[in-house]
Design a protein around this nucleic acid. Structure first.
Lengths: 346, 346
DNA sequence: TCCGGTTGATAAATCGGTTTAGTGAATCGG
DNA sequence: CCGATTCACTAAACCGATTTATCAACCGGA
């Protein structure tokens, strides 16, 4: 019944002949560039397109316009962290708002895969690339990635020309420590982790700065390192809590360590928050709310970072904004029930 | 210095004139379809392509070949569950192996977004669509999605023509219960959740079947419902454990409820696993290993489901396999330390 | 009647590849 | 030595859109 008895989806040509106009007219109408086309013709085109169930072939349009409305999302690892979801969600929401789709690839940290992946993305004419790490780290970006606008997500590069967004670790640590101080704590321990990641050093700095700002002397003995899991937190906390002059508050590198600290406290018959106050970091959605008592902690702004990265990328794609090169995203405090005033006698 | 002094990336035409051959030859060589082309010419083309840093425009190739090497991944929600990562990872790995890229969109459950998203994907000529839910559920698939091969991931549809993969809830529950039975437990409770999702009913069935298979009478009083969080598990377990003839083993709808049950046990001074054995479900990566003691639980095979979905999709795209319509993926038991023999006197 | 300007539209080039249909020269069988 | 293959390669059509350049018809004014 259609004008051409061809197998396959309807093309613009089909719409054109159905409406009795040229392809040019159809294109103009469908893209709202129909400046001099009378409403009657316009409607005829629209009707024909609807009747035929016409769906433009984006590949063809993109080829001609040399665009793709697609951005690449390259990550080293997706599955092994619970943070990934929020970051991707943020990135997608921002992309969606700008009418762009996201091509995702995760490389599992394999440089060969990475090179191949970048080629695949660039071959598909992605307009920009978000390069995401699943925890705050320094990375080296392959040269190929720099062929299009590029933004680093939860990672930084030695190349300062590449915009990046990471959590404000120092600020978060500062606020966490200040939170304890504001409740009256003076002896505050820091459970740091042994790994040498940016987060570790910066959170320690934030802790120190908060003490300093409140005229509390930094005491190296109150900083104990452990591995960043529950066991490490348990061990580190235990070391501090058995001391006679033990701290009344603990700022922990992350929620897992905080959970370990809580376990140590339970074993020592210290009640939380009555005898010991605890602040974690990360706000793990399935951990922090469910410790006993629920853990006060700092939220890692993964969603917001994802949004920022894509927005920034799109600004660069549009050639609008090149000003901000390095964003530190604030980590908000999530108050639950693990912080209270210190016990009256220490 | 190049043959054409044009701005922009090098095209096949450039490679052709650099190598002194036609575009046809270049295309043939680069796509390994060069049947009758002598090695010398082939090498000249390869060298020219390398020298110019030629990267084929996939959009153009795809337009001509009417393919896209792209599949769409539509999900209702990504961020709010910790499972998403593994599913996406599985899907990506399988896609990657087949040389395809994944366009991801999440709709947040909004039907308008969904319709728009499907149009965007189909417009980009995706070869197939994976439709993923973030927990096992029944869904209705928009008609548009059926225009290309389609596979449901962690979801089922009333339309039995659509292949789907979901966890084998019943089998998992059967194995979990059997695990308790094999340790000698006879009075086994089931903490079910109140929501009416497929997982709930099927896990209850698996529990009953395991009892039956081992000649243990089903006792409705040992099944208590609670909300699917920690609080619900706590309340439900408490109700069972204060009874004089309390169960010695508990199969819990999920790990969060199991954690709640553990908390209830602690309060009642019941030791795990000496006084009470516990099996969870989901193997939440940040919960199950860190309860005290670590929780024996059933793993949801998200990665494997992701792989299966894409493999199945690709089979259908290639027109190879249309046989399997509904896959139930086994949930393996993850043994930790929360199950032991029942106490000698109950 | 002729001219300049607007209106409403279109033919054809183009994007960058793939693929079909050939072409001219060399080789081969008889 | 001649027709038939094979070899090595290419010109041109094509995929399905966008965009440029152009055109016919009409209108008002000189």
């Amino acid at each position: 019944m259609t004008s051409s008895d061809r197998y396959g989806p309807t093309r613009m040509k089909d719409v054109a002949s159905a409406a009795g106009v040229s392809m040019t007219t159809v294109s103009l109408v469908l893209n709202d560039k129909a400046v001099g086309i009378p409403a009657e013709t316009k409607q005829r085109v629209l009707d024909a397109a609807a009747a035929l169930g016409y769906r433009p072939n984006a590949l063809a349009a993109n080829l001609r316009t040399r665009t793709s409305d697609t951005i690449g999302f390259v990550s080293d690892t997706i599955a092994t962290t619970p943070y990934a979801g929020a970051m991707i969600q943020g990135a997608q929401d921002a992309a969606w708002k700008a009418g762009k789709l996201i091509l995702t690839i995760n490389t599992n940290g394999d440089p060969a895969v990475e090179a191949y992946a970048l080629n695949a993305l660039l071959g598909r004419q992605v307009e920009g690339i978000v390069y995401a790490a699943m925890y705050h780290q320094m990375i080296e970006v392959p040269a190929a990635a720099k062929e299009v606008p590029l933004v680093l997500l939860d990672a930084r590069s030695a190349d300062s020309e590449i915009p990046s967004v990471v959590p404000d670790e120092r600020g978060g640590a500062y606020e966490a420590t200040s939170h304890l101080i504001s409740h009256g704590h003076k002896r505050i321990g820091f459970l740091k982790n042994t790994a040498s990641v940016p987060a570790a050093n910066e959170r320690l700095e934030g802790y120190r700065e908060a003490l300093e700002a409140n005229a509390i002397a930094f005491d190296g003995e109150l900083v104990v390192a452990g591995d960043s899991g529950l066991a490490g937190g348990y061990a580190a906390a235990m070391a501090l809590l058995v001391e006679p002059h033990r701290p009344t508050g603990l700022f922990c590198f992350n929620d897992a360590m905080a959970a370990g600290a809580a376990r140590a406290a339970h074993e020592l018959n210290l009640r939380i928050p009555d005898d010991l106050s605890l602040v974690g970091f990360d706000n793990l959605e399935l951990v922090a709310p469910f410790t006993n008592p629920p853990l006060t902690t700092m939220q890692l702004p993964h969603y917001e970072m994802g949004v920022w990265a894509v927005e920034q990328l799109i600004n660069r794609i549009d050639g609008e904004d090149f000003s901000v090169f390095h964003q530190r995203m604030q980590c908000p405090l999530v108050e639950r029930a693990s912080v209270g005033p210190p016990p009256t006698r220490t």
